[in-house]
């Protein structure tokens, strides 16, 4: 057992500071264990969210040594030995207190996405290969690390015109569902602000569920938007084939 120093941001929307704590570290410990120990023994009121402690609920998101991580999944032995461990809240969302931020914006965005609407003639016969893509997207645990790291939200603060990677993944899961009947491409192009994404892939880098957010969700959606709005040949083909095919690339 050894002692390590943790520097944890304490404060609220009016400001705060990093406070150092010494924690007894045992083998296999994760950052969240250390936070719990601090809570139990040194700072009863240290605010942090957590639930499952198994990387399945996505509650304990924070920035550990500047990197957006789930605290329950970040092993101490994977961090540089002998250095202080610095923990701060997600930077993209308003601070509530200590490591807790106000992520309610995400829930508002989710409400704007038209939900699953099965085709009236849906047979519900789907092969595994038909659902693999949607299943990958549905692994999302809504930790909002991708939203936090995305520079469109983090640096450019475009919350009013950009849904963020989490919700592109959600839209992709609906759009590629074999039984869904809705067309969400106009939403993607306009309100969701897909064009603001410049595919710099930080969302994919931080995803604790290893969802290939950029390659499997965002880029395929961008290509569908191209089909609909930018590709002259596709547009012409649709004109020739008539109105019915106008949903190509969407539904």
């Amino acid at each position: 057992m050894s002692i390590r120093t943790f520097s944890v941001w304490r404060g609220d929307k009016n400001g705060g500071r990093f406070v150092e704590y010494q924690v007894e570290v045992e083998e296999g410990m994760v950052v969240l264990d250390a936070i719990h120990q601090i809570q139990r023994t040194q700072a009863h009121d240290l605010a942090c969210r957590w639930n499952c402690k198994a990387a399945k609920c996505g509650s304990c998101s924070a920035e550990v040594n500047g990197r957006p991580r789930l605290m329950c999944k970040t092993r101490l032995d994977a961090l540089p030995v002998g250095e202080m461990v610095r923990i701060q809240p997600l930077q993209t969302f308003p601070i509530i207190r200590d490591l807790v931020t106000d992520v309610s914006w995400n829930y508002q965005v989710n409400k704007k996405i038209p939900p699953f609407a099965p085709r009236p003639d849906a047979s519900w016969v789907m092969l595994q290969q038909d659902v693999n893509r949607a299943q990958e997207f549905r692994k999302c645990i809504e930790c909002f690390l991708c939203q936090n790291v995305c520079h469109v939200l983090r640096e450019h603060e475009r919350k009013s015109e950009f849904f963020g990677p989490r919700f592109f993944v959600r839209i992709a899961s609906l759009q590629m569902h074999p039984m869904d009947s809705l067309d969400r491409l106009p939403l993607l192009k306009n309100e969701a602000g897909l064009g603001l994404c410049n595919i710099t892939k930080c969302c994919t880098e931080v995803c604790p569920e290893d969802i290939h957010i950029t390659d499997n969700a965002i880029i395929p959606l961008k290509e569908r938007v191209v089909d609909r709005y930018y590709d002259p040949i596709q547009i012409l083909l649709r004109k020739i084939k008539g109105e019915k095919a106008s949903h190509a690339g969407g539904k």
Binding site: P118, W124, M126, V131, R138, H177, D180
Partner: peptide
């Protein structure tokens, strides 16, 4: 029917 995607 509400959108859950089970293994097949």
């Amino acid at each position: 029917r509400w959108g859950a995607v089970f293994d097949r």
